[in-house]
Amino acid sequence: MALTHMHASGMGGIRTTGDLVARMQLSKKMRLNEAKKYVAEKLKVSVDDLADEVAMKELRQDLDIGDVYAGMGEQARGIEAKFRIAELLDIDINCVQRFLRKTKWQ
């Protein structure tokens, strides 16, 4: 069922920018259009591009914020990517803050 929804109406997660839009809804209570607009502005792309796997794969690679492929391009992944996403979206991410505290970087 998760796959059916992803194909029918989902944004595509880290294949595109679904994780970033979800993050703005969950952390800032933004409604869908507001969250899409916010992410598009931060990424300097149009709202229409947000769910385009091809354009967003290249952009995620350029920004080094992780995508579905590992290896080869040495993409940031997991916590590494979230450090960059927090800065890109200008938000605090809980596990990033914890990482900073635990490594005494903050």
């Binding site: 029918a8 109406s9 679904g18 979800a22």
Partner: peptide, 15 residues
């Protein structure tokens, strides 16, 4: 058998 939204009408999924 399968239908989907028009491009641009995608939304966020939580589980």
């Amino acid at each position: 058998k399968f239908v989907s939204v028009e491009k641009g009408n995608e939304l966020v999924l939580t589980y």
